[in-house]
Simulated scan of single mutants.
Amino acid sequence: MKAIKIYLVLLLCCFSSIGFSQNDQKFSEANTLYNNGKYAEAIDKYESILDSKQHSAELYFNLGNANYKLNNIAPSIFYYEKALQLEPNDKDIQNNLAFAQNMTIDAIDKVPVVGFSRIINNVVNIYNTDTWAMIAIAGVLLFVIIFLAYHFSHTTTKKRIAFVTSVIALFIACFSVAMAFQKYSLNKKYNPAIVFSQESRVKTDPSATSEEVFRLHEGTKVQVIETYDDWKKIKISDNSTGWIPTKDIRLLKDF
């Protein structure tokens, strides 16, 4: 029985290796098509890799580049944004995304976050949720070790140093836990999407017969805050809200 299990695992590994090898070949072929100026064919080849559920920042970046060459505004921005989710500090992705965003029609003022909220958001966004959690665990472990050192110290000076250090470690642990929960909360609320419709009419209510609030055009980034049937309630960067047909947008968090 064990031999059969091992055989099945090895068989699955072989199929995975074959799949990765085929995708590497497709990726190479797509790059060749792109370099030869055959952007539409390159897009088809890149998307066939996505169909196999293999994702990478490089793949999304190249898809963005190919769509940008064809002046496909919404797809280019969409794929650059996807790439940026996987590699948030990549300068090439950031620069190309900025170029693509210059092709959009909508000029929406961004409401700045000011005061204490801005400070908290800046601190929270330094690390992701997992990193904040690891810092919290390290802080707790450090607190326990130093507290034990305090307990077994015999001199007043060593006890004082150990006590102060343990308090600092405990503070770091508690602060990191708070930041981890805050980051998790922000990630849960963060649900961006890109408008794919050439022009979409945003309504006051999730109904085609309701009053129009404003119009959005392809490539504009929105935040989805609610879903009702075939409608999404969205917010744009100036904090205006409204309902848009689900078919007019594509969610960025879907992989």
Rank of each mutant, 00 (worst) to 15 (best):
K203I: 02
V224L: 08
S210G: 09
V213N: 09
F214S: 02
D229N: 15
D230A: 11
L216S: 02
K203S: 11
Y228W: 13
F214L: 01
V213Q: 11
K235V: 05
D205Y: 15
K221R: 11
H217M: 04
Y228H: 15
S207M: 14
N239Q: 11
H217A: 07
W231H: 07
N239I: 03
S207G: 10
S237M: 06
D205H: 15
D238G: 01
D229A: 14
G219C: 09
F214N: 03
P206Y: 11
G219V: 07
I236L: 03
I236P: 00
T204D: 14
V224P: 04
T220L: 01
I225H: 09
I236K: 03
D230M: 12
V224D: 06
D230N: 14
K235D: 00
D230P: 02
I234H: 05
T227F: 13
K203H: 13
E218N: 11
K233N: 13
T227G: 08
K232L: 08
K203P: 01
R215W: 06
E211P: 00
L216W: 02
V224E: 07
E211R: 13
V224F: 06
E212S: 10
V213W: 05
S207H: 15
I236H: 00
K232H: 12
D205F: 14
Y228P: 03
N239S: 10
K232D: 02
I234F: 08
I225A: 06
W231E: 00
K233T: 03
T204R: 13
D229H: 10
K221H: 12
A208F: 08
D230F: 11
N239K: 09
K203T: 04
E226V: 07
E211K: 14
P206D: 08
T227M: 11
E218I: 04
W231Q: 05
H217K: 09
D230V: 06
R215A: 14
V224K: 05
D238K: 05
Q223G: 02
S207F: 14
D238I: 02
D229P: 01
D205C: 13
K221C: 07
